[in-house]
Design a protein around this nucleic acid. Structure first.
Length: 535
RNA sequence: CGCGGGGUAGAGCAGUCCGGAAGCUCGUUGGGCUCAUAACCCAAAGGUCGCGUGGUUCAAAUCCCGCCCCCGCAACCA
């Protein structure tokens, strides 16, 4: 048995700008799989995330709807919580970045980074709107694209061109329509370049652990590393407490990423443990620690560079080695998920219509693990009906609801099946730790297939008619034994189903990552199908 | 000429690092079985591995070169 490890699993914080979409579930379910697995092997696990609330978008939306940014984000936060609950995410903490606790802890950390010399002052030229009386964000500006000639938003032209500082000289303010002027702006900058060596070392160490996208994307940034702005001239954000910059707020990325840490701090206070044992090398130094970061590909540089650099900038024994679990994108019906399109992609809507456990299984075996993955309702239905219901569900029914069977008989467990079960725990555990969730889920389903095959070969329906019932009992007991173990092995992927299964088999609720046995004599007359077919 | 990920049977994907008889699941077709939600088991058919009919090699899905397409990034969207 392994020694107990301290594990932090950070799932990227969804931005409170829209309802949660299915793509978030697809790229985040890996975090919940990791959490449930690590808890099962006996590690101390903190699965943390929360609502990212600050920044330009909620502020603009609030202005458009005539309400406060907080009202906007609260609406979406509610949607997030509901959807994540429906998909059975087992968060230990799901925070929110406007929480005064998060704000205060972030400010303390930023002051320390400033004192350590990693946040410095700079002067840049930015578009300023004389009418609005403030510096405008790119998304609030319109410019004439020199490539396609169209007027477009400064943060993304349809033709793909990225405007330079020069292109924005004659930008128009989208809020009031006035021409902006270039004006010098005092900003705070985070000295990312100070951590080039540290970050390069981290990438080198993880060459065989991270996926290709995070390795190469990070290398790209490191080859031309630049310091990044720290301050923003926005109201809706965490106020900067550094002297001379009190009128500015922190660019959301810097504070949202620290949410993983502030979640842990708060949880430690609530539950009475030392949060530092999860994030720092000098507390519980002999305990093995892992920090997983689960997110989609657009989040890579922030998790692979910003967060470790900030922690290093605190100069306080922080672990600066994230295990990056970077997913690609989920496409729906071959198209990218777009807020404006008609493609229905809201997570909560799917959760209310379909089985969230089989959706999780779908994402595990067919999700955007190493490349963009396509989601179609037809494919989901096929996987639900033909793999989850027919193979897994049917194995349970044909065993436990065998004609005339009312209690689970005592029988000898088949040696080959038992070895297969033991082997599956080992394989699947290794695959999950290697971040190969697709192979892990398939390996469990393979055990199901193996057991269905065993069942067919044994022909228990013939054995049941013999005078000596023992051979029949042996088959049923062997299959029931596998099913009991499937309630552990499938638990990271289909937690609610496995919980129900444990209830049927009168097993302890706790999922453990080792072979278990089902008590003979238990009543099986009331067992119901775990799944219903989807039409 | 920007950078990264990807393009493999009808569908969804492994395999590519480290070259050595094209694999998996579903679907389709045929057979077996009757315990089970018409579920389960066995077998078969189906692919010139995006393109160049490019280069290297005894041998290329895999290495090299060029091109096309999809997704992401491109530093004030997050």
């Amino acid at each position: 048995m392994n020694k107990q490890r301290n594990i932090v699993i950070g799932v990227s914080w969804p931005y409170a700008n829209n309802n949660l979409h299915l793509g978030y579930i697809a790229s985040s379910v890996s975090g919940d799989i990791l959490a449930r697995y690590h808890r099962a092997v006996g590690d101390k696990v903190l699965l943390v995330s929360g609502v990212d609330t600050h920044g330009t978008k909620p502020e603009l939306k609030a202005k458009a709807e005539g309400c406060t940014p907080k009202e906007i984000v609260d609406r979406y936060a509610e949607n997030f919580r509901e959807a994540l609950k429906a998909f059975h995410f087992s968060f230990d903490k799901f925070g929110i970045t406007y929480d005064p606790y998060h704000e205060k802890k972030c400010q303390e950390m930023f002051e320390r980074m400033y004192q350590n010399g990693y946040i410095y002052e700079n002067v840049v030229k930015r578009p300023y709107c004389p009418t609005c009386g403030k510096f405008m964000a790119d998304t609030e500006l319109q410019f004439k694209c020199p490539v396609c000639g169209k007027l477009s938003k400064a943060d993304n032209c349809d033709c793909g061109y990225v405007p330079t500082e020069k292109d924005l000289e004659n930008a128009t303010c989208l809020v009031c329509g006035a021409k902006t002027v270039q004006k010098e702006q005092r900003v705070l900058v985070f000295k990312l370049t100070a951590f080039k060596d540290l970050l390069e070392e981290m990438v080198r160490k993880n060459e065989n652990i991270w996926r290709a996208n995070s390795i190469n994307e990070t290398k790209k940034y490191l080859s031309d590393l630049r310091d990044r702005d720290f301050s923003r001239d926005l109201k809706w954000g965490i106020p900067i407490t550094i002297k001379g910059f009190e009128d500015k707020t922190v660019w959301v990325w810097w504070e949202a990423l620290l949410g993983y840490v502030t979640d842990t701090m708060k949880l430690g206070e609530e539950q009475g443990f030392d949060w530092r044992a999860f994030w720092k090398t000098d507390v519980e130094p002999d305990v093995e620690k892992k920090i997983y970061m689960c997110h989609a590909k657009d989040n890579i540089p922030f998790h692979s560079m910003f967060l470790p650099a900030m922690l290093a900038a605190l100069n306080d024994h922080f672990i600066t080695n994230n295990i990056m679990v970077s997913a690609e994108y989920l496409l729906i019906d071959g198209e990218k998920i777009s807020k404006s399109s008609n493609t229905p992609c809201e997570a909560l809507v799917y959760a209310q219509t379909y089985n969230t456990d089989s959706l999780r299984y779908y994402f595990a075996i067919n999700g955007p693990e190493k490349k963009d993955a396509n989601f179609t309702l037809e494919l989901y239905k096929t996987i639900h009906n033909n793999e989850v219901v027919n193979k897994f569900g049917n194995l349970i029914n044909r065993t436990l609801k065998f004609k005339g069977l009312t209690t689970l008989p005592k029988g000898k467990i088949d040696k080959i099946l038992q070895e297969k079960v033991q082997q599956t725990y080992k394989n699947v555990g290794e695959l999950i730790e290697a971040l190969e969730f697709k192979k892990a889920a398939l390996a469990v389903m393979d055990l199901v297939a193996e057991t269905n095959k065993y069942y067919d070969e044994q022909q228990p329906w013939l054995k049941a008619k013999q005078e000596d019932k023992q051979p029949f009992f042996n088959v049923i007991a062997s299959c029931a034994y596998v099913i009991g173990n499937l309630s552990n092995l499938f638990a990271p992927f289909m937690p609610a189903t496995c919980e129900k299964l444990k209830t049927f088999l009168q097993l302890p609720k706790e999922v453990i990552w080792q072979e278990i046995f089902v008590q003979n004599g238990i009543d099986v007359s009331n067992i119901e199908p775990l799944f219903t077919r989807v039409v």
